[in-house]
């Protein structure tokens, strides 16, 4: 979320960051076995062989249509799901192999903020209980007094009134509930947070408040974010780099400014022109790329390039060969047979 000066110089930014990889995701696969509508067994390849790094202190955005695998990827990284294959390496340690006890230590460093703040908060617990529980699990309070003090500080930090501590979630507005969710996540002093659509369920007038709070937390606490969203406007503002997902693959990954200026994957190009532009002069004039059809079923994805059924540039080879996810220019990864040649 970048208020950091060094980030304005692309080269300095890149090299400084490349040294500090926080999380390496290697060939990660997350498959689910389901029963298809005809009662047959089938496999959903929700995340299918993705490889990328998350750098310390950055906000990495993840965009893509519903069902493309964003949430699944976020959860597999935290081992909320047990990955089918592949590795997640956190600060040099492969956490996909860790046993339960050891894993708890890493769970504390990696937190999750949910889209629907209400569904994720126990309605029978007070705000103080909710935030306190997180402290208790990881034994972060030395005494009752210390616990109460910590809770008060956390509430203040996320912009809640300390008098709110004894209230229940239903007494709060959507934005305030999301603040409670943020307080619970940062209570355990994490290094990394997956923010899964943290503002999508909120009123437009409240979104900016919550984004600002997330940014402030990041600066103060040196957090690294994986920021999942389908709102490309929000992502454009908040993220340093952005990954674009389609049917379980990351099809493009690059610094966010470059993504918006020079998208190389046909899917990204279409996605960008689909964003409603809040400026009538621009909106009424521009030419949009309207994609045909809808995202195919992940149970039965197309052969070769999974985007080929909707791609305006698809050729024969796209049917036969899966395009490799490779670098086109510094730090710009794309999976398309014709990247840069379209």
């Amino acid at each position: 979320m970048a208020n950091n000066e060094s980030k304005t110089s692309p080269s300095g930014y890149n090299s400084a960051r490349k040294q500090d990889v926080l999380i390496e995701v290697k060939n990660l696969k997350q498959y689910f076995n389901i029963k298809s509508s005809l009662g047959k067994k089938a496999t959903v390849k929700a995340v299918d062989d993705v490889t990328f790094n998350i750098y310390k202190g950055e906000t990495l955005g993840l965009v893509g249509e519903s069902g493309s695998g964003k949430t699944t990827l976020g959860r597999s990284i935290l081992r909320i799901y047990e990955p089918t294959a592949g590795r997640v390496i956190f600060s040099g340690v492969d956490i996909t192999k860790l046993k339960k006890g050891k894993l708890l230590h890493y769970r504390k460093k990696m937190q999750y903020i949910f889209q629907d703040p209400y569904a994720s908060l126990d309605p029978r617990m007070t705000v103080s209980d909710i935030v306190g529980e997180a402290l208790d699990i990881h034994k972060l309070a030395t005494s009752k007094k210390d616990r109460a003090e910590k809770i008060r500080e956390l509430l203040k930090l996320v912009g809640l009134n300390t008098e709110h501590a004894s209230r229940y979630p239903h007494e709060f507005s959507g934005g305030q509930r999301q603040r409670i969710g943020i307080a619970r996540a940062i209570a355990v002093e994490p290094e990394f947070i997956v923010c899964d659509e943290p503002v999508s369920a909120l009123d437009v007038s409240i979104r900016a408040q919550i984004i600002n709070t997330l940014e402030e937390m990041q600066e103060r606490l040196n957090l690294t974010y994986l920021f999942i969203s389908h709102d490309l406007g929000v992502v454009r503002h908040t993220c340093d780099r952005v990954g674009v997902m389609y049917l379980g693959h990351i099809v493009e990954l690059v610094e966010s400014e470059e993504l918006y200026k020079n998208p190389l994957h046909p899917y990204t190009q279409a996605l960008l022109t689909a964003i409603p532009e809040p400026d009538p002069e621009v909106a009424k004039k521009r030419n949009r790329i309207i994609l045909k059809g809808e995202i195919p079923s992940p149970v039965n994805p197309p052969s070769g390039c999974k985007f080929r059924t909707r791609c305006p540039f698809a050729k024969d080879i796209c049917k036969k060969e899966i395009p490799e996810f490779k670098e086109h220019g510094s730090g710009h990864y794309v999976a398309c047979h014709f990247a840069g040649k379209l």
Binding site: K7, V204, A208, Q209, I211, N212, H237, P278
Partner: peptide
């Protein structure tokens, strides 16, 4: 004015958003 000002804008990347205060 507040609604329009609170929208994320690429040209002001890196700057803080200007939210509308308070609750609905």
């Amino acid at each position: 004015k507040g609604l329009l000002r609170s929208l994320p804008d690429l040209n002001k990347k890196g700057e803080k958003l200007i939210p509308i205060q308070g609750n609905p």
